[in-house]
């Protein structure tokens, strides 16, 4: 099995494994070779590494051209630059054209780009790509899941956006973990007092919150949503109906990401109380990942407090 540490290495390890078996897999960089941890790929396959320079629109447009000629390009660079600077190239030339382009968006979230600050923190990426028809959107929870998801997604058709992180994410799952692409993953089931829906690299915090709740006599279920689009709608509805109240937790603006996706679905199929935790429509700042996440409302205690209040209000 491939060796990797963190989501960036895991993603490129999966890409390299796919490339070993499929000569159509190529890599497009926007001076992001090192950031993507893809140096080994470029050394192994120098004729499959295309460098667009610090020019994300160019990188994504080039990828569209490569894909239109039957190749399967992977574009890996900072998620904010893919989804904002090159948004139109992604939308019009990769999605509208339904081409096999896979995007790896680095620095997903506040703690994904914690050292650099807001310019390098992709806070809105999922909200942006989720609005574009035909794009599949995945936000894995750690390195092992990134690897498993990226391997599984290799057989998908059409454009795919992966949200990756800093490469320093805490491990939650064991190496070799399996994943059912596009389905919810029940991670913990301490009861149906409250449902905790987690997406991305905050799952460790959510699991700690569930332990805090348990210690206080509240049984929470923790469900991990790695696929924002397509959303496992039946799975979410089943869990919402079981618990009746839910907290969504994500390292993304609460507008457009997991919280929005769940609330949209719930409004149509099973109206219930949902509290959305994430970046509360503000620009955060740089700082150590853990204290940063705590300051902006994603501490296990804050998650537990929100869940406890919701559970206490059930039925009222």
């Amino acid at each position: 099995m491939s060796e990797y540490k963190g989501s960036r290495e895991a993603f490129v390890a999966a890409m390299t494994d796919l490339a070993d078996k499929d000569p159509r897999v190529v890599f497009v960089s926007a001076d992001s070779l090192k950031a993507a941890r893809a140096t080994n790929f470029a050394e192994k396959y120098p004729d499959r590494y295309f460098e667009a320079g610090i020019a994300e629109q160019n990188a994504v447009a080039m990828a569209a051209g490569l894909a239109a000629c039957g190749l399967k390009p992977y574009v890996v660079t900072y998620g904010g630059f893919i989804t904002m600077r090159a948004c139109e190239q992604l939308r019009t030339f990769c999605a509208y054209t339904d081409l096999d382009v896979t995007f790896g968006g680095l620095n997903g979230g506040m703690i994904g780009g914690e050292r650099e600050g807001v310019t390098h923190q992709a806070l809105e990426d999922i909200g942006i790509v989720r609005t574009i028809p035909g794009v599949k959107v995945f936000a894995p929870a750690d390195a092992a899941e990134t690897y498993a998801l990226a391997k599984a997604a290799g057989s998908l058709k059409g454009p795919v956006y992966f949200r990756l992180g800093s490469g320093r994410e805490p491990d939650v799952f064991s190496p070799g973990t399996e994943v059912e692409l596009g389905k919810l993953r029940k991670v913990l089931d301490y009861g149906n007092d409250v449902l905790l829906l987690s997406s991305g690299f905050v799952l460790d915090r959510v699991l700690k919150a569930a332990e805090l709740l348990k210690a206080g006599g509240i049984g929470a279920s923790v469900v991990e949503v790695h696929s924002l689009k397509p959303l496992d709608a039946d799975g979410v509805v089943r869990e919402l109906e079981r618990c009746q109240v839910a907290v969504t937790i994500e390292d993304h603006t609460v507008i457009g990401g997991l919280g929005s996706a769940i609330a949209e679905l719930a409004a149509e199929r099973c109206p219930c109380r949902i509290q959305r935790l994430g970046i509360q429509d503000v620009f955060p700042e740089s700082g150590p990942a853990n204290t940063l996440a705590d300051k902006y409302g994603l501490s296990p205690q804050a998650i537990a407090d929100t869940a406890r209040a919701l559970a206490a209000g059930k039925g009222r």
């Binding site: 447009a61 080039m62 990828a63 569209a64 051209g65 000629c69 019009t92 030339f93």
Partner: peptide, 30 residues
């Protein structure tokens, strides 16, 4: 994807050259 013979969707100005770069790279690689 709609019109036989059209190799690339277009209309949003400025993008054709970069897409052509990708196609020309594919021509060489393949």
């Amino acid at each position: 994807k709609k019109t036989p013979g059209i190799d690339m969707t277009s209309g949003s100005l400025g993008n054709g050259l970069s897409i052509g770069v990708g196609m020309a790279l594919a021509s060489g690689y393949t």
